[in-house]
Simulated scan of single mutants.
Amino acid sequence: MEPVFDYSAGTPWIVNDAVEAVINEQLPEGSAGVVADAVADEQVRQFRTTESFRQRYREAFEAAGVNLPSVTLGSSSPERSYREGVFEDLHRWSARFDTADWLRKVTTPEQARVVAKSDRIGVILNTQNLGEAIEGDIDEVERLYNAGVRLMQLTYNSQNGVGTGCTDRSDGGLSDHGLNVIEKMNELGAVVDLSHCGTQTTIDGIEHSDAPVAVTHSSCETVYDHDRAKSDEELEALAAVDGYMGIVAVPFFLTEKADSYDFEVFFDHLEHAVSILGADRVGIGSDFGSIDADYPTALRDGMMEVLRSVGFREEHEVELGEGFDTMQRYEDWGVIREGLEERFTESEVRGILGENFLSFWDRVREA
């Protein structure tokens, strides 16, 4: 099979009676973030103990046609620090990898290509808030790398010790500590991810990294002006260093709020990125994991509070569980392939689906 990479951020939303029981029993008395962590624990327990539950995960990825998802480590609970959540999630993924022989942790592009040719799913671990994950300690970058984390996003929405995030009201760029973090990442061969970074932090990251950098899951400001989007200036700088960009498939990042969303807007952003970066430096970062149309209504309001606590404000119009007319669940991911085949050559489609990311990853390791 060909490699199909997606920065999905999460996994398909899979539940059974045991998982639903956790939601129903704990939500009346606990915050949504705490309950979400309890649900994640139960999902892993069911993955370890119930063959039919494991099979539903595999079938979801197969239906989507994705064999190289990148998933984010972390916690929604206010009772845990971001760093604690990252390492708790590492334990969850270790349990999954130990349980299912068809699920593999992927740490190199060579491994990714081998997995893609088999009938297995290769998971590339990422963190979306490196500054909070390392808490000021440069040595923690190597600890994460040693645990298998390969994509490291410098900031989330808000400012941290490394730099300024994309929804922060300031735009301070990278700190001196942030420059040292990038130096350590370059030394290790980790991918510098600038997706949620502010404009100046993005430009600084591009300029100061010795290896090409990525914007794994974002959109184009020229098509729709949103704090999560990247300007043409940023895209041009990314192209100049032979970097990579993945386009999100989340409605409220791509277009104005509406009762329903036409999936064509996703391709508007993708084609604009291609016009600047070239068809060989663009891919998919759907960011369309766990919280899709099947996400429980009971948890949505509480999780909206969690999102506001990490830098999303009312003007960002975040709506959990909202999909497009033709992409409501992760299993619908195949509409991306269909749309690409209508717009690009066969070789360009292969690149956008996965080869572009793997070639970029090769360049990072060779730098």
Score class of each variant (00 low, 15 high):
Asp101Ala: 06
Ser31Ala: 02
Leu144Gln: 01
Gln159Phe: 09
Val215Thr: 07
Arg56Ser: 04
Ser218Pro: 00
Thr216Arg: 06
Ala229Glu: 03
Phe253Met: 15
Asp280Gln: 05
Ala293Val: 06
Asp37Ser: 10
Asn146Met: 12
Asp287His: 00
Thr326Ser: 14
Leu154Phe: 14
Val349Pro: 03
Cys197Met: 14
Glu342Ser: 08
Arg54His: 06
Arg228Leu: 00
Ile284Leu: 14
Arg350Met: 10
Ala40Glu: 06
Ile276Pro: 04
Gly148Phe: 00
Asn67Tyr: 08
Ala116Arg: 04
Gly85Tyr: 07
Asp89Glu: 15
Val265Met: 06
Ile291Tyr: 04
Ala279Thr: 02
Phe5Trp: 05
Gly189Cys: 07
Asp89Thr: 15
His217Ile: 01
Asp225Cys: 08
Asp294Val: 01
Phe5Glu: 15
Glu233Tyr: 15
Ile336Gln: 09
Glu341Lys: 05
Gly285Trp: 00
His272Thr: 05
Pro78Val: 13
Gln111Arg: 12
Val114Tyr: 13
Val34Thr: 08
Ala239Asp: 13
Ala38Tyr: 03
His217Arg: 01
Asp98Glu: 10
Thr222Glu: 11
Ile23His: 02
Leu174Asp: 06
Arg329Lys: 06
Glu110Ser: 10
Thr107His: 03
Phe266Thr: 11
Leu130Phe: 01
Val86Gly: 13
Ala214Ile: 02
Phe87Glu: 13
Asp225Glu: 10
Leu270Glu: 06
Thr50Asp: 11
Arg83Pro: 10
Ala36Asn: 04
Gly65Trp: 06
Pro69His: 12
Leu238Gly: 01
Asp287Glu: 09
Val213Phe: 07
Ser75Leu: 10
Asp210Thr: 12
Val274Tyr: 00
Arg300Ala: 00
Glu207Ala: 08
Arg337Thr: 03
Asn180Trp: 08
Glu88Gln: 14
Pro296His: 01
Leu358Phe: 15
Gly189Asp: 14
Thr297Arg: 01
